[in-house]
Write a protein that binds this DNA or RNA. Structure first.
Length: 419
RNA sequence: GGGGGAGUGCCCGAGUGGCCAAUGGGAGCGGGCUGUAAACCCGUCGGCUUAGCCUACGUAGGUUCAAAUCCUGCCUCCCCCA
């Protein structure tokens, strides 16, 4: 592919390219020398649960691979012992090596679903390989290339410093270690979220001191979560986990708003295509046009998006099932649709009294549809319970041997009582 | 080593002796509306066959007719000085 097209694809959806002309230069150079670019992505194996936000840089990395470049995934097993101070107002707790190991495995399992694992295009390295054996002399040599003032200009540190919160000395070393990773693998490009900008630039600096061609930093925007406002994060409860069950993942994608706050009518939909799915710029553009013209219904656009996302992580079969399930649950109404998707379950005890009636809150609790009988009572009082398709407003009711229970729109079960 | 502060329901966070199962926000849940599990509106949100009762405000005791609120010990976390 020619250089211009490559640049178009690679710079799509990117927050910043530093320096601005850097990507172009690197690509032209690679073309001239007929060698692939080395594209680095550093991974901090601290959180075991990955979500779609984490997938953004991985998608970009995959685009590089697809254009023939070489991805180097650095598992920061060593740096994880320090914890990235980026965006943190407090020192992160250090992890044990076992935790780091387990997290790294979870990470790579997920990452392989996005990346091309052709060994010519992907290399995985643990940075303990070179960092663990650094001796103090080498460390001094490394650190002498950075200045305290240089580190302090960084926002995270400055804020903490000014507000008199503690900054561990070891935290100063984080950018240094990460920068050294870039030296070690001679990275041409490094990817990261916008919050990683400082660390990526530190890599540039250090490479220069080691007389290497400095890497180009490519930062990617942070993906908004399902609320369409804040960045996706587990602590905001707006994340879509890569290990979610198919139906849940599908539904969560369907629940993203069309529009990200103040960014155009279908901006969230197109953004997810671009960032979470890594669709190419022309595809995203034509999708946006179709949505604007009304040719494509936003619901269908999201449904396709959800399908593809589920298919990536859990397979096409799961995606198909999740889609069918979603439609049966929310598009088609009525008892027949409910019967199709309801799970069957058998209660071990018969809750009925001699007169054939049963206290429904207990039945709901036994069936695992509510977590307490008080909650069951509430649901019934609020008009959320249907038995065999009929609204049931009484706490006690006569029950047959098999019946369909529906609570709200989502929970549906066919209950069988022991005879 | 010395001094100070804090621990409240799933999370954040009010509450400083009775009016507290505990304000408010978020998440969750139910209803309405809708192209959607979006947005918005309404309701609900410890447990219990619930006009009542039980358990709860770090933990163990104590004072009091009455404690999340006062006292003491213990545990945990944080900050400042050295």
């Amino acid at each position: 592919m020619n250089a211009k097209d490559q640049i178009d694809i690679l710079s799509a959806g990117v927050a910043e390219i530093l320096p601005a002309e850097g990507l172009k230069k690197k690509i032209l150079e690679a073309e001239k020398r007929k060698r692939p670019l080395i594209v680095k992505l550093g991974v901090d194996p601290t959180a075991p649960d990955l979500h779609l936000g984490h997938a953004v840089p991985l998608r970009k990395l995959r685009q590089f691979q697809d254009l023939g470049h070489k991805a180097v995934l650095i598992i920061g097993d060593f740096t994880a012992r320090v914890g990235d101070p980026s965006g943190r107002s407090v020192t992160r707790p250090a992890l044990t090596t076992d935790q780091v190991k387990a997290n790294a495995k979870t990470y790579t399992d997920q990452a392989f679903k996005i990346l091309d694992d052709d060994p010519g295009k992907l290399e995985i390295k643990y940075n303990s390989a070179w960092l663990a054996s650094l001796d103090f002399a080498k460390l001094l040599e490394l650190t002498s290339r950075f200045t305290v003032a240089g580190l302090l200009v960084r926002d995270d540190f400055m804020k903490r410093y000014k507000s008199e919160q503690m900054i561990g000395l070891h935290e100063f070393l984080y950018p240094v270690m990460q920068a050294y990773d870039s030296v070690e693998i001679e990275a041409d490009i490094e990817l990261g979220g916008t919050d990683q900008k400082f660390n990526l630039l530190a890599g540039r600096q250090l490479q220069e001191k080691y007389e290497l061609e400095p890497q180009v930093a490519l930062t990617l925007p942070l993906l908004e979560g399902t609320d369409g406002a804040k960045k996706m994060s587990k602590s905001y409860d707006n994340h879509i986990g890569l290990t979610f069950e198919a139906a849940d993942m599908f539904g969560k994608v369907m629940s993203i708003p069309d529009e990200a706050a103040g960014q155009g009518r279908f901006s969230m939909i197109t953004k997810y295509y671009q960032l979470a799915l890594g669709s190419l710029p022309d595809e995203v553009a034509s999708l946006g046009a179709k949505l604007e013209s009304g040719e494509l219904h936003p619901r269908d656009a999201k449904s396709q998006l959800a399908w593809q996302i589920v298919a990536t992580y859990l397979g096409e079969k799961s995606a198909e099932d999740a889609k069918a399930d979603f439609e049966a649950r929310f598009k088609v109404k009525g008892k027949d649709a409910a019967l199709q998707i309801a799970d069957k379950m058998k209660l071990s005890k018969d809750p009925r009294k001699p007169d054939g009636t049963a206290f429904l809150p207990h039945v709901l609790k036994e069936a695992g549809l509510v977590s307490s009988s008080s909650e069951g009572r509430r649901v019934i009082e609020q008009g959320g319970l249907r038995v065999d398709g009929e609204l049931e407003g009484n706490l006690e009711a006569r029950l047959g041997n098999e019946f369909l229970i529906e609570i709200g729109k989502r929970k549906k079960k066919i209950i069988t009582l022991p005879s």
